Computed example of a mutant assay.
Amino acid sequence: MIGLVYAGGKSIRFGKDKATYHVPGLPATNVQLAVEKLMPLCQQIIVCANETNRAHIIELVGQVPAVQIICDIPPYDHHGPLSAIIACTSQFSIVQDYLTLAVDYPYITKDTLAILARTSNSYIVTSQHKHYSLAHFSISNEQVTTWVDNNSDWRLRSFITNKCGCYPLVYRSSTEFSNLNYREVDLNEK
């Protein structure tokens, strides 16, 4: 299984790069936490960064064995998670099994990811939100690019449910599924 970490977002609402952000009280940056949680479940981990945070992400996790840092590839760049999926799948010539995790879920547990890894064609749902970036599916690069070229639909939701045929894996709402969209002001931050 290939782990795909979505780390290339612009983090506009958050106010600083989510991937390299270190949440107070947690032991590492968000990208380090994501890689560490996927390591026991995946043979290889692909971190899809952006041109701005790529160098910093290489410093943080680039030396970890089986981790590769990539960026979106033209002409499919700058379209969110589907751009990352295209860039990631372009690294392989055949259908692969992918376990995806966005860096803005720093509280997700290894146990939850292990259940997701064991549940093919699934994504996590709580009573409050559908977490399409927490998913497990099998796909090839040709299948992804054909989907985008034929549908012009860059929504992760459509891809996960309609193309990959993923089903909801239902969980109770909890802080584990908190998504870092906005950063509270940390008075200790310099």
Rank of each mutant, 00 (worst) to 15 (best):
I94L: 13
H129C: 09
S138I: 00
A55R: 11
K10Q: 07
D153C: 09
C88E: 11
M1E: 13
A49T: 01
V148G: 11
L4D: 10
L187T: 00
A84P: 02
A87K: 06
C164V: 03
H131Q: 11
G80N: 04
H136R: 15
Y6D: 03
S140Q: 08
R13P: 09
F177P: 01
R172F: 08
M1N: 09
V103L: 02
N179E: 12
V64K: 15
F92E: 06
L101H: 02
R172W: 00
L99Q: 10
I70Q: 10
L134M: 08
V170C: 12
R157Y: 13
E184I: 14
D97V: 01
K16T: 15
N151F: 06
G9C: 07
D153F: 08
Q68A: 07
K16N: 12
P75F: 11
Y6K: 01
Y107V: 00
H22Y: 08
H129Y: 09
A19Q: 11
Q43V: 01
L4Y: 02
S120L: 11
E59C: 05
T52A: 14
V35H: 06
D77H: 15
C42S: 10
L38H: 01
G25Y: 10
E189K: 03
A117Q: 14
L60M: 13
T100W: 10
T126N: 12
L156C: 01
I69C: 15
R157M: 13
L33N: 08
E51N: 12
A114K: 10
N179V: 04
A135W: 08
